[in-house]
């Protein structure tokens, strides 16, 4: 009878060993096919982080002057730009505005109205059944660059994805967008690219089938010392170039790096327009819960001290 227990215990302990050993090679086996994204310090990170409104405004300018010719932003309306947390939100109208205008209302915000009016919106049908064009108003959504997907594909080979949620739709988020935009480089000379595609080490893909045959040995492996470049190819040419946009603030560098940062910050805002109010509410909720928790814990201790 006494023999049983130790035997079972030994068996049980013996089981623990292979389990812990098995987990190890698995942990080592993991590996990615793309370059690790650059880790940027964003103003909106952290529990108290907020958007840098000037950067979001500049990023909007980059979107409008460059990206918008290919990419839609269909979940964003002009009025969102003037909502609390948005880049053109103002609490009070600048001096000289009539009293009956409330600039904190995005529908009346002059900057938002001006931006919307620059766009041409197709509306209708009117009373005679015709579609017509009119200047945008804050309630309109950003119009898409292409009237339909077929035209978008004709122009680009694929439909350029909508950018409204891009900062949440890729792992790495704004870091990924920044890395992608600044990451274009010459591909190694032993890789053969099809026309119309561009190499980017941050874009997911697999170039192992694009190696020029003269760099492969008989078994189809890459020759000594060479390796398949990280990343893949996409149908978007590097969209940014130095000095292509004129910022109103001349102290801000007119570089690809700066444009990419700004547009990534703008796209984070389009993806998560309520980030600031969410964090503010969170702080109040947490303070409340912690104080309440302390009180409940104290009453728990007091009440239970009498239980024996």
């Amino acid at each position: 009878m006494m023999m049983k227990k130790p035997l079972i215990m030994k068996l049980a302990l013996a089981l623990l060993l292979p389990v812990s050993l098995l987990a190890m090679p698995a942990a080592l086996a993991a590996g990615g096919g793309t370059k690790k994204v650059k880790d940027i310090e964003w103003s909106f990170e952290g529990p108290f982080g907020e958007y840098d409104k000037a950067a979001v405004q500049r990023g909007f300018q980059v979107y409008k002057q460059v990206c918008a010719s290919c990419h839609s932003l269909k979940f964003v309306a002009f009025r969102h730009l003037g909502q609390e947390g948005g880049p053109f939100y103002v609490k009070k109208c600048p001096a000289g505005f009539p009293d009956n205008i409330d600039c904190s209302n995005p529908m009346e915000n002059p900057a938002v109205k001006a931006i919307a009016a620059e766009y041409e919106i197709t509306d209708g049908p009117d009373d005679s059944g015709d579609m017509f064009k009119r200047p945008g108003i804050p309630a309109d959504y950003f119009p898409s660059p292409y009237p339909n997907d077929k035209i978008a594909i004709m122009a680009n080979g694929v439909v350029p994805p909508d950018l409204s949620l891009m900062a949440k739709a890729r792992s790495g988020g704004p870091d990924y967008i920044y890395s992608l935009l600044t990451g274009y480089e010459e591909v190694a000379d032993y890789v053969q690219l099809d026309p119309g595609v561009y190499y980017n080490p941050y874009f997911p893909g697999d170039l192992s089938s694009a190696i020029k045959p003269e760099f492969l040995d008989e078994e189809g492996h890459l020759k000594d010392g060479l390796h398949v470049p990280l990343g893949g190819v996409l149908k978007m040419k590097a969209p940014l170039m130095d000095n292509m946009i004129e910022y109103a603030d001349e102290t801000i560098p007119a570089t690809v790096d700066q444009y990419a940062r700004d547009v990534a910050e703008f796209l984070m805002w389009t993806a998560e327009p309520r980030l600031e109010s969410r964090k503010e509410t969170g702080l109040i909720v947490l303070i409340y819960l912690i104080i309440f928790g302390g009180i409940v814990y104290a009453s728990y201790r007091q009440l239970w001290s009498k239980v024996d």
Binding site: K279, T281, G282, L283, V285, L286, L289, I290
Partner: peptide, 11 residues
């Protein structure tokens, strides 16, 4: 538990 929950929801 709600404190943990709030950290996820808000942050």
């Amino acid at each position: 538990f709600l404190i943990m929950f709030a950290v996820f929801v808000f942050y």
